[in-house]
């Protein structure tokens, strides 16, 4: 579905902020420290990383609401510094924090937003009907935003971001704070958009979300990209096929790690459990039990992006 047209290209992209203090000079803080990114048309591209990795700063630069501090950024081949309004007219933005007008109803929120783009009033009205249907909020058209659930608000924000029929849809943490059912509804809608050929760019700190939605992703940590590829490639490259998780009593995990170290390709010690990376998890588990060790709980699972992240950064995504 993707072609070779470059939708977003970044070379050595940087973002730094000066944190002003009342006394003395400001302290410079680098949120993005030189990243290269290429997003092709039709792809669902994910930025995976923990909070503070620089994902949102990158998104804000792509949305042309944050000046680039260094390096080069092109969206549709255009420079955000000189073509901000044109770029923004062709992208849709679903921000991390809802920016809906609580005092307007659902329909009005969509209507005024469509007008911001200069769309004719009758065009906006037609699109609202389609979009409310798409995000399953037709019945709520006259409801106050305040009365909507978190998942409905997020669906409304997604509908709003689609009002200008964007070529790129940017989603910053689209399902953070939603319950599992609401998350699946959102994923389903985003998947449909992807099938319609919309280029999706999303940030997330949920590995399952990245696995569900992203064709390609970059793993970010502390302002840099530490790995890039498809979810499957990344797992193959940075992890074994399976993981055996074993949990000993409180405080015992670290002490017992050396006793199982040779049973897997790699062992990660987490505060509450040990992760044994191996292609045969059941076998590793049998070996652990064979040594007379008695973990309180055990689990064998397939490796995920969480394991990739742990491998790359030594930390889990939730940190």
């Amino acid at each position: 579905m993707s072609d070779q047209t470059s939708m977003i290209s970044a070379r050595g992209l940087r973002k730094s902020f000066v944190q002003r203090s009342r006394k003395g000079p400001g302290i410079e803080f680098e949120a993005v420290r030189g990243i290269d990114v290429d997003v092709r048309r039709g792809v669902a591209f994910g930025f995976l990383g923990p909070n503070g990795a620089g994902k949102s700063s990158t998104m804000r630069m792509i949305c042309c609401v944050s000046p680039v501090s260094g390096g080069e950024l092109r969206i549709f081949g255009l420079d955000p510094a000189t073509h901000g309004p044109e770029i923004r007219s062709r992208i849709g933005v679903c921000p991390q924090e809802d920016t809906l007008d609580n005092e307007l109803n659902v329909w009005e929120n969509l209507y005024v937003y469509g007008r911001y783009f200069g769309l004719p009033r009758d065009v906006v009205r037609d699109r609202i009907d389609e979009l409310l249907d798409f995000v399953q909020l037709t019945e709520k058209a006259q409801a106050k935003v305040d009365d909507l659930s978190g998942g409905m608000k997020r669906r409304l924000t997604i509908a709003r971001s689609l009002i200008n029929k964007p070529e790129i849809l940017i989603l910053d943490e689209p399902t953070t704070g939603l319950d599992p059912q609401a998350r699946h509804v959102i994923w389903d809608r985003l998947f449909r958009l992807k099938q319609q050929g919309v280029t999706l760019v999303l940030t997330t700190h949920y590995m399952d979300e990245a696995e569900q939605l992203a064709d390609r992703l970059v793993v970010m940590d502390k302002g840099v990209i530490v790995a890039e590829g498809s979810p499957r490639e990344l797992i193959e490259q940075y992890s074994t096929r399976e993981v055996a998780e074993i949990r000993f009593g409180v405080g015992e995990n670290e002490a017992l790690a050396p006793k199982v170290e040779d049973l897997a390709e790699r062992v990660e010690v987490l505060p509450d459990r040990l992760l044994l990376y191996t292609d045969d998890g059941e076998r590793a588990l049998q070996d652990v039990l064979g040594r007379g060790l008695r973990p309180e709980t055990t689990l064998v699972r397939r490796a995920t992006l969480e394991d990739v992240f742990l491998r790359l950064t030594g930390r889990s995504l939730a940190d």
Partner: peptide, 10 residues
């Protein structure tokens, strides 16, 4: 944060 939704448009 209405201004943020406005500046996300052109």
């Amino acid at each position: 944060r209405i201004y943020y939704s406005m500046i996300a448009s052109p």
